[in-house]
Design a protein around this nucleic acid. Sequence first.
DNA 1: TATAGTAGCGAATACGTATTCACAGTTGAA
DNA 2: TTCAACTGTGAATACGTATTCGCTACTATA
Lengths: 354, 354
Amino acid sequence: MERTAHRGNKTRQGITQRDIARLAKVSQSTVSRVLTGDETVDSETAASIRSIMAQHNYRPDGNARALRSSRSGLIGLVVKRPQGGFQDDPFFAMLTSEIIDALAGSNYTLCLELASESTQRSIYDEMLRSRRVDGLLLVESAAQDERIGLLQRDRFPFVVIGNPAGEGGTVWSVDNDNPAAAAEATSHLIARGYRRIGFLAGPLGITVSQDRLRGYREAVEAAGLSSSVWECEFNLESARKAATEMLTGPDRPDAVLALDDLLATGVELAARDLGLSIPDELGLASFNDSKRCEIIAGGLTSVNLNIPKLVKAACSLLMSLIEGSPDQAPTRIIVPAQLHVRASSERQIQAVPA
Amino acid sequence: MERTAHRGNKTRQGITQRDIARLAKVSQSTVSRVLTGDETVDSETAASIRSIMAQHNYRPDGNARALRSSRSGLIGLVVKRPQGGFQDDPFFAMLTSEIIDALAGSNYTLCLELASESTQRSIYDEMLRSRRVDGLLLVESAAQDERIGLLQRDRFPFVVIGNPAGEGGTVWSVDNDNPAAAAEATSHLIARGYRRIGFLAGPLGITVSQDRLRGYREAVEAAGLSSSVWECEFNLESARKAATEMLTGPDRPDAVLALDDLLATGVELAARDLGLSIPDELGLASFNDSKRCEIIAGGLTSVNLNIPKLVKAACSLLMSLIEGSPDQAPTRIIVPAQLHVRASSERQIQAVPA
DNA sequence: TATAGTAGCGAATACGTATTCACAGTTGAA
DNA sequence: TTCAACTGTGAATACGTATTCGCTACTATA
């Protein structure tokens, strides 16, 4: 005589394949076949089953599916979170957003993990070794990363976005040609008549710093100029401080190439503090071409990294790794970047005779 | 005679409870008991099992676990993505980051979903009805949301961050007291001697716009001043355009309260274009107290929403909903916000006799 | 007409875990 | 001494799906 409805909690049970089968007067396996798109089901039977499914609003249980087929349909995104949290840098949001778009048509869903030192280990255990995710996107720029070794040992599908320095050709990765892009940006500044070009890098232990620094150096040396490099942390205060030192020291640069729009913002602040006008007294360029480039320094020249394309490449690569390991040697995919010139580097050209 | 090793793909098999049991010379169920923290296992047996687990680097299969216990340990985050993608607004990144921190000690992991119009439906089906997530955090400000009805119908655990307008007392939610905060910010501007205070809102269909507008109106009217409201989209260009109209129209405001740091940035740009100095000729205040407040307009007065606390409250609420539905009436939790005064509203006080 | 081939389908099983049930052995109180 | 309670355990089962294995009919070929 007991009512069962008031349990409230367990009531949320959901309908299963067996229920559908009962209603359609077929076996559960036939229902399953319809779901997996098996061709050997009579089209009329299939239609009837489908209609009953729709009618009862049936949805397969993702966990059962994952257990049986050992494929979860989840992709993990691992980003190293800068200490001090995310600054205004929209890189992370752009990335996430693009990944979701890239995955939209597929059978995969994004699952997020921000790594700080403390959660780092948990990612690997909780998500990966528990088979919760089918593959990993690693946003990587640290020169050393012990996780990569672990992933390789387990033959776990993963793609690095960025430059996994030590792992040269042993890892699938997608990146821009940062040295070339940095060289182009530097050459652009030189072509605009700037002569003492400084480089404001992030932490030098990070490969993206190293790569862009290299391109900068090459371009500067090729032009017979000398280089001057400053290092700072990935936050505004640090960038502003470094830029201030840079611009008040001896042999002050007349142009700065910053690693990042965030750091470039710091340079602009420093310049404003010092009363230096951009672009006349100081040229400025950087990387990312984020929205803020339209407002910083009256328009900030910046390298567009083509994040949508970068992400699409990474995702489709990862999916193919997950689905049928091509057993091909790992490749590094390079997505072209493009310099987006704006006012911050548009000084009147100062006669540079051919 | 066939080698089995070269399959390469299926090799990634992983060790199971049964394997552990065999090694420990106990039954699989005892191993399971150790894992679930069942007290009835002999401590010596348990120790031995644990040691074997550690030795063989065992990890329980998350999918099997989820299937059996109908609890996945995943929490979904649903954010409505503004069209045009994320601008420089760091709100999303702050949120995500804080959620991960809040979940760090718990047994839950974050799983992300950005909703655009097209993926909206898929969230509900793929993640929720497939039982992939145990609960949902909904970042909500639309006045109407059909998803909430669906969630309620299925008695699915979810918590709204923000104000789910129509759903008054029928939904668990966590929010700031936006009317009060807006009133405080407005009163602050008035106390600093500003007299014609404009409000730059986002889209008015959004509850956060409505709530802050209300507080602004109350404060302005209480001071015997008149209100003037402008609406714009959630992007810099739109804000700048609206602010320009605002500041060039008749009866130009001498202070602006913006809905958001992003919109406030647009106001600053417009002011700069028009040669209006902040704070002397134009007072400015907004909401979010993001990092950029330290650099906009020489320091932007902004309401700190206390996102860490907001998020912690939402997460622990959600977890308790998931674990044992308290069958208590839904509650709206209000986290106090605090006005962070900076230079942008710090005009010399112009004699306002008591 | 006999046989090979094939389409369609149900029974059974596997995936790895959590949980229920029963049972043996021990303890403790009557 | 007897029986009840308790402790620690293994066998069995369930979770919902995908998949393998045969079996039945039916068609095509000879």
